[in-house]
Amino acid sequence: MIALTCLCGQVRTELGKRPDFIHACNCTLCSKSGAHWGYFHPSEVCVEGDTKGYCRSDKEAPSAEIHFCEQCGSTTHFTLTADAVAKFGNVMMGVNMLLADERDLAGVEVRFPDGRAWPGAGEFTYVREARFIGEG
């Protein structure tokens, strides 16, 4: 199990497993929210504490609602919006892996997708080679 907390400790997240990989995306949403995402099925994540949600207003139908601690402002996780759940099902949520102890993530691959250039469908291209946490 991996335990994560926001800066003030008000929001606590527990994961039953490590992420398969982490995305350190350069899109405006990810870079401005200060998050590196690990992806999980909602049943694998337990979030305790009060968060506030935000959906970006520059997209007609945003797929993700970012959650952050009401006290310290740390980005904690994202959930799919109602539109995305209706389209795909409640199959994924993201957890900000920057809130984890790096020792708990040793050996996990960090990928660097070029979200700013991504057209919204299909595969990502990457801005640099992936790295593994704890190596070099």
Rank of each mutant, 00 (worst) to 15 (best):
P119Q: 11
E48K: 10
E129W: 03
V95C: 05
D58Q: 11
E65S: 11
G38E: 08
A130L: 09
E102A: 14
G136T: 13
L80C: 01
G136F: 00
A82V: 13
T81P: 07
A121M: 12
D114I: 06
A61F: 12
L29A: 12
E48F: 00
S31K: 14
L29W: 00
E102Q: 15
F78E: 03
G38T: 09
P19K: 06
S31G: 04
L80E: 11
S33A: 14
S31A: 11
E123C: 05
H67D: 00
A117W: 04
F124I: 06
T51H: 00
K17L: 07
Q71R: 13
L7N: 15
I22G: 06
N26F: 08
L4W: 05
T5G: 07
A35I: 10
A3M: 11
R18V: 13
S33M: 15
F40C: 08
R103E: 14
R18K: 13
A24C: 09
L15V: 08
E109T: 15
C72F: 08
N96W: 07
L29G: 10
I66Y: 03
R12W: 00
V85Y: 03
G49N: 05
E129D: 15
A121T: 14
A100D: 04
H67G: 01
N26C: 06
V91N: 06
E135P: 02
F132V: 12
Y39K: 01
E65A: 14
E60A: 15
A86R: 14
T51C: 11
R111S: 07
F124S: 03
C25H: 09
L29R: 08
E14C: 08
F132T: 15
G38Y: 02
V108W: 03
C72I: 07
R12C: 00
K52I: 13
V110G: 10
A82N: 08
A35R: 02
F112P: 05
A86L: 00
V47L: 02
P42I: 11
G136R: 14
V110F: 04
F40N: 04
T51M: 06
L7H: 15
W37D: 05
M1D: 12
D104R: 03
L29T: 13
E60L: 08
L15E: 08
T125H: 09
V110Q: 03
I133M: 10
A106G: 01
P62F: 04
T125F: 06
G115T: 12
T28E: 10
G115M: 07
C8N: 07
F112T: 05
A3F: 06
T5D: 03
A64Y: 04
R128A: 07
G107T: 11
F40R: 02
F68Q: 04
S31V: 06
V127N: 03
E123H: 05
E129R: 04
H77G: 02
T5L: 00
A24M: 03
V11D: 02
